[in-house]
Amino acid sequence: MSYNMKPSIFFLGATGYLGSEFLILLARDFPGLQVKALVRNATPEKVAQLEKIYPGITVVEGTLEDDAVIQEQAQSVDVVINTASSDHSPSVKSTLAGLNKSAAARPGNPPLYIHISGCGIISDDARGEDVDHATIPVVSDIGLDLKKCPPTNTHLDSDIPIVEAGTRKENPIRSIIIFPAQIYGVGSGIQKNTLWLRFFTDFAKKLGYVGTWGKGYNSMNNLHVKDCANAILLVFKAALEGRAEEGAEGLYFAATDAPRIPYREWTKVMGDHLHAQGLIEHPGTRPMPDEVVEPLGHYGWSLLGGNQFAKPERLARLGWIPTETLRQPLLEALPAAVDEAWKSL
């Protein structure tokens, strides 16, 4: 099997929080590649922002719903990178359909698909309750079997078909899935803040206080966005060199050993910070009412009310060191990120 060290890339999510952070690193270490980015509402401003980060990038206008566009672009490149959405299964199906055609046309040299999912696959759905941590499994990415995860957890509808495409005997693709933990920090790219923080900031503005799903005792591993982008780059490099684990073994937790901060603790820091600036009525934190949390249903309870304890052993094998998380722990980085999220409302 040959490995292309100057691959062509189709990128979904290049203008997003994690995607544009990764694009900065790609431009630094891999300038001059043929990179095509799917962009919704490709305004001149968006195009200029992307070109500033990665000179020569090609913008393909479209959305995650554009099956024909995604299939065509996925079929035409060596690598697809998807940081756009971990729960948009139609775009994953479109991507796989394009990659399937590519794999059939290039036997012995299959295309590579790097998909960004999330640690929601291992949520215990504790619904914010105070659970004895000794009873919560710490799940390693070595030996991880997605079909043994709680079947109603987030992301699995997209992830399982990717692994199946990476393990089949006929026309397989090279599949890699990265599962970030709680990503935080002000980004250096186009989108400055993570989606979950924008959720909580928006709710706080409407309610006058910062809240939690249930009592907020749940927690998860965390990492700074710069470390997460660096993890993707490390895996990408290893894949080009033929060193990355792929298929059934190509499952990587992007997480750190930094202390897991319960939601009730970091939301208190957030609430006190916003209240001190006179932006919300009440300091601290409290459980949010049903009319806020229930519209997201099981998705919200599992993702934002559950514990997710991950053990990232595969990245450690590649020598990954989360330097930015060590330099800017979650609670120290939170106020600046909250300010940035509030400005974007």
Score class of each variant (00 low, 15 high):
Phe11Gln: 01
Thr15His: 00
Gly16Cys: 07
Tyr17Cys: 08
Tyr17Ser: 04
Gly19Leu: 00
Pro31Thr: 10
Leu33Pro: 13
Lys36Pro: 11
Lys36Asn: 13
Glu51Val: 11
Tyr54Asn: 09
Ile57Asn: 00
Glu65Gly: 10
Gln73Asn: 15
Val77Ile: 00
Asn82Gln: 00
Thr83Asp: 07
Ser85Trp: 02
Pro90Ser: 02
Thr95Phe: 03
Leu99Phe: 10
Lys101Cys: 11
Gly108Arg: 09
Pro111Leu: 08
Ile116Cys: 02
Glu129Asp: 13
Asp130Glu: 13
Ser140Gly: 03
Leu144Phe: 03
Lys147Leu: 06
Asp159Cys: 05
Asp159Met: 04
Pro161Lys: 01
Glu170Gly: 01
Pro172Cys: 00
Ile176Arg: 06
Gly185His: 03
Gly185Glu: 07
Val186Thr: 04
Gly189Cys: 06
Gly211Ile: 06
Asn221Met: 12
Asp227Asn: 12
Ala229Glu: 02
Leu240Gly: 03
Ala244Lys: 08
Phe253Trp: 08
Ala255Met: 00
Ala255Leu: 02
Glu265Asn: 13
Val269Ala: 10
Asp272Val: 09
Leu274Gln: 09
Glu281Met: 15
His282Ser: 15
Thr285Asn: 06
Thr285Ser: 07
Val293Asp: 09
Asn307Glu: 04
Asn307Thr: 10
Ile321Trp: 13
Leu330Arg: 05
Pro335Met: 01
Glu340Val: 09
Lys343Gly: 07
